[in-house]
Amino acid sequence: MKIGVLALQGDFREHIRVLEDLGVEAAEVRLPHELDELKGLIIPGGESTAIGMLMQKYGMDRAIKEKFEKGMKIWGTCAGAILIAKEISGEKKDFSLGLMDISVRRNGYGRQLQSFEANLNVKCIGGFKGVFIRAPKIVKCGDNCDVLAEYQGSPVMVHEQNLLATTFHPELTKDAGIHQYFIDMVKDEISIEIS
């Protein structure tokens, strides 16, 4: 089982390190053919406009959507969550993959000075340090979404079928719990509860 990390821009190296620490084969992915053997893909934090533009350039957006339709699981963190969202609040989503039934607002908590760390309580995992850096805010979730964690009443971690979104950065902490959750998702060992 191989999990890829989209390495066009952002903190992809940190995700690779956590996956490898958990004994999973991980690969940097930049071009469509590198998606071939992947069962899961992480879209990391970075600048969503930059990653979005680079994704379109070599047909990565199309290739990712095709693999997703064939069952590849996708987890987006921060910028990654923006890129998989169906709706970007108040903007045209010209660079988005538009996969997950969530609406996000970019820089939803403000600029860097408003970046924060907060203790979260994540369903199935427990206490987790949420590192939010110029994070997007999830302002709406569809009926098929399972909200796994919230901060101040807004969802910050959401699971919908083959998709996972976190607006914070688990890869910047020493806790591999959420990476393990995604690995279990890729292995089809987790199903979601919809209330």
């Binding site: 821009q9 190296r13 930059a50 910028a79 860097q112 907060a118 979260l120």
Partner: peptide
């Protein structure tokens, strides 16, 4: 509600630079 947030930590400062990696 969850009023446990901290700002301006070194991890947050370093973290933004991590997000800029591979970029111009």
């Amino acid at each position: 509600m969850d009023d446990n947030a901290v700002k301006g930590t070194y991890r947050l400062k370093k973290g933004l630079a991590e997000m800029l990696k591979g970029g111009v």
